[in-house]
Structures are given as structure tokens and as C-alpha cells.
Simulated assay, not measured.
Amino acid sequence: MTTTDPTPKYTVPGIEREAAGRLIDVLRLRLHALNDLHLTLKHVHWNVVGPQFIAVHQMIDPQVEQVRDMADDVAERVAALGGVAQGTPGALVSERTWDDYSIGREDAIAHLGALDLVYTGLIEDLRAAIKVVGEIDPATEDLLIGQLRDLEQFQWFVRAHLENAGGSLATARADTELDAATAAKD
């Protein structure tokens, strides 16, 4: 059960319980974001079509596995801090601050355009989380920084399909996943 007060009854040595509660609160949303990303990537994997199908299909699965490992690391950090790692779909849906992925069966480039925006939002939120936890705990900060590097690399893989020889990104002006999917196809 999620409570409004994430302050644990105990935590790791050297961190006050209230500070651990702040860490747990930040990590809770990171866990939801990673679980959501895992499911979104599998959705893309199952629903991608077109001439670049196999390249995207095979590019996505290693990202899925790595994101699942990231979620596990975050959940275990929450538990180590004395918190409860809520990994249920209900907790994810009720606590997330973003909308569901909006692209269904579509060609590879459209999905990659939408994923570019997904990764942008995720990376921006993760950078903000790193600032918060960095003031409290270097171990949690280190965990999130490592994940940031991996997620930025995944976005680079996606963007390599969306960039032209002049360095312009097809999704540069898109504000929504649908806009990004459309722009990527044009």
C-alpha cells in the first residue's frame, strides 16, 4: 500500500529517516517510469511494421532487458532505504505524471519518432531527480547517473534513425508522440 508519508521506520546507516523518505518518494516515480518504459518498449516491439521492422524489432529487445534491470535496481534501493517498492500496475497508473503511449500498429520510423519524445521526457525527469537525490545520498545519485547514461544512449540509437546527413532531427519541432510519429515519416 502506498502512503502519503514515505518516511521509513528504518533506513541505511548515515541517512536520516526523513531524508530516506524523500529519496524513496523520488525513486517511486523513477520505478514507475522504468516499468512504464519497459511496457512501452515491448508494445513498440510487438507493433512495429515496415521495411525497417527487423532492425527496430531487434534494437528494442536489449533496451527492454536493460530497462527491466534498471527498475529492479531502483526497487531494491527503495527496499534498502526501508521503503516499499510499489511495482503494481495500479500504483503505476494512479501515480504517474504522464499519459499512456499513444501509437499503435505503425511503421518503424513513426514509432521511433514517438519514442524520441518518450526518451526526452524520461531523461528530463531523471535529470531533475538526480539533482534532488544528489543533495542527500551519493549512492542513490550514482545509481541514477548510470541509468541516465544508458537511457541517453538508447535515445541516441533511436535518433540515429531520425537524423538526416545534415544533422537535423525529424522530430525537432514535435510536441506530442503523434506529432513526432508524423514528422518522422515525412
Rank of each mutant, 00 (worst) to 15 (best):
L143W: 03
Q86W: 01
R96Q: 09
L115F: 00
T140K: 04
I145E: 14
V118C: 09
Y101I: 08
A110I: 03
D72V: 11
D73L: 15
A71E: 02
S102D: 11
D116K: 10
D116T: 05
E135F: 08
Q63I: 12
Y101T: 09
D107C: 13
G134L: 04
E141I: 09
D99F: 09
R149K: 14
A80D: 14
G134N: 04
G113N: 05
Q63A: 15
H111R: 06
A71F: 03
A75T: 00
Q155L: 13
L144E: 02
P89D: 01
M59Q: 15
T120W: 12
I60T: 13
E106L: 08
E124T: 10
L92R: 10
D116H: 06
D69V: 09
Q66G: 11
I123M: 04
D107T: 06
A71D: 02
I145F: 15
H57S: 03
A128Y: 11
Q155C: 08
H57Q: 02
E141N: 09
T140F: 03
G121Y: 00
I103T: 07
D100F: 15
A71T: 02
M59R: 08
E95V: 07
A108R: 05
Q147F: 10
I145V: 15
G134M: 01
L144K: 02
D107E: 12
M70F: 15
Q86M: 06
V78E: 02
V93E: 11
A79M: 05
G83K: 01
G83T: 01
T88K: 10
E95W: 12
V93G: 06
R149V: 15
D137V: 05
L126D: 12
V84W: 08
K131N: 11
T140R: 03
V93M: 13
D99H: 12
D107Y: 10
T140A: 07
G134D: 02
Q66E: 15
G113I: 04
F154K: 08
L143D: 03
Q86E: 05
